[in-house]
Simulated assay, not measured.
Amino acid sequence: MRRRSTAGLVVAITGGANGIGRETAERFARAGALVAVGDLDGPAAQAAAQALGAPAIGLALDVTDERSFTAFLDTVEQQLGPVDVLVNNAGVMWVGAFETEPERVAERQVAVNLLGAIRGVRLVAPRMVARGSGCIVTVASAASLVAPPGESTYAATKHGIHGYLKGVRRELRGRGVDVCAVMPAVVDTALAAGTSTGATPMLTTADVAAAVVRAVERPRFEVFVPGRLAALAVLLAVLPRPVRDLAERLLVPDQLKRLAAGAATRSGYEATHFGGPTP
Results as ranks from 00 to 15, higher is better:
residue 47 A to P: 01
residue 147 A to G: 11
residue 106 A to P: 00
residue 38 G to M: 09
residue 133 S to G: 08
residue 65 D to M: 11
residue 48 A to P: 02
residue 58 G to Q: 09
residue 139 V to F: 10
residue 130 A to F: 06
residue 108 R to I: 11
residue 88 N to A: 06
residue 55 P to E: 10
residue 34 L to H: 10
residue 91 G to D: 12
residue 129 V to N: 03
residue 92 V to I: 15
residue 98 F to A: 13
residue 105 V to K: 12
residue 137 V to K: 02
residue 95 V to R: 12
residue 65 D to S: 06
residue 167 G to D: 11
residue 124 V to L: 15
residue 84 D to E: 01
residue 149 P to V: 08
residue 43 P to N: 06
residue 66 E to W: 10
residue 150 G to H: 08
residue 70 T to A: 15
residue 102 P to L: 06
residue 43 P to Q: 13
residue 146 V to K: 03
residue 56 A to K: 04
residue 99 E to C: 06
residue 34 L to V: 04
residue 68 S to H: 05
residue 120 G to T: 10
residue 146 V to M: 09
residue 115 L to K: 08
residue 75 T to V: 05
residue 35 V to C: 03
residue 113 N to W: 02
residue 81 G to I: 04
residue 31 A to S: 11
residue 64 T to M: 10
residue 67 R to D: 15
residue 142 A to V: 13
residue 101 E to K: 06
residue 62 D to F: 07
residue 37 V to W: 12
residue 67 R to N: 11
residue 63 V to D: 04
residue 108 R to G: 03
residue 120 G to D: 07
residue 33 A to R: 00
residue 52 L to S: 02
residue 38 G to Q: 09
residue 97 A to Y: 02
residue 69 F to S: 06
residue 156 A to K: 01
residue 81 G to L: 02
residue 51 A to K: 08
residue 33 A to N: 00
residue 126 P to L: 14
residue 136 I to V: 15
residue 152 S to V: 14
residue 40 L to H: 04
residue 111 A to C: 08
residue 159 H to K: 05
residue 143 A to R: 00
residue 47 A to M: 11
residue 86 L to E: 00
residue 40 L to I: 15
residue 35 V to T: 02
residue 30 R to I: 02
residue 116 G to R: 09
residue 121 V to R: 01
residue 129 V to C: 04
residue 34 L to E: 11
residue 161 I to A: 08
residue 96 G to R: 05
residue 167 G to A: 14
residue 68 S to T: 03
residue 114 L to P: 03
residue 129 V to L: 11
residue 165 L to T: 07
residue 134 G to C: 06
residue 53 G to L: 13
residue 73 L to R: 02
residue 137 V to S: 03
residue 42 G to E: 15
residue 124 V to P: 01
residue 68 S to M: 07
residue 167 G to P: 01
residue 32 G to D: 06
residue 100 T to P: 03
residue 70 T to V: 08
residue 35 V to F: 00
residue 137 V to H: 00
residue 115 L to G: 01
residue 154 Y to E: 08
residue 58 G to I: 14
residue 143 A to C: 09
residue 77 E to Q: 13
residue 54 A to W: 07
residue 146 V to F: 09
residue 128 M to G: 00
residue 110 V to R: 05
residue 158 K to Q: 12
residue 98 F to W: 09
residue 127 R to H: 10
residue 115 L to R: 11
residue 38 G to Y: 08
residue 91 G to Y: 08
residue 63 V to A: 02
residue 109 Q to N: 06
residue 46 Q to W: 13
residue 67 R to T: 14
residue 54 A to Q: 13
residue 129 V to I: 14
residue 157 T to S: 09
residue 149 P to N: 12
residue 121 V to E: 07
residue 101 E to W: 01
